[in-house]
Amino acid sequence: MEKVTLKCKVAVSGNVRAELMWCNEPMSFWGTVDPQSGDIRDNRHPFYQQNMKGKVLAFPTPKGSSGTGLIILEQVRTDCAPAAIINVRSDPVVLTGPLIAKRFYGVSIPVVNLSEEDYAKLEGAKEVEFFEEGDEIAVYY
């Protein structure tokens, strides 16, 4: 696999390498994700019918309801949460679940932000690796 390193801004840190699910549409978890399975149920979303369990989920910006924090926490409980999240711009709503998972349950779901330019480079990548220290991710094609 070809490996590329990208600079990122870390919101929640952690060590993980997993398969990438990338899209270029904003995303809400509330009303979109089944918190018992990790399936994406919104038929208007490019991830429709895919499952996010253990995957690196990349979407440019969060949208919609503030219920997203509770959905991600429920996914942690039912073991179908994504392995990590990549955004161009995260908001406190999308960070709530991963921050609480890390600080209260010792579960790491790293969240990082990339520049728009670097975000576009992720398209077609197979896997992404995150690191507890530093401000880089490794992308594998």
């Binding site: 219920g67 924090g69 509770l70 406190p92 709503v93 709530t96 609480i100």
Partner: peptide
């Protein structure tokens, strides 16, 4: 106040 989302406001 900002828009705090549940359960962040508890913290």
């Amino acid at each position: 106040t900002n828009r705090y989302a549940g359960p962040l406001e508890l913290l």
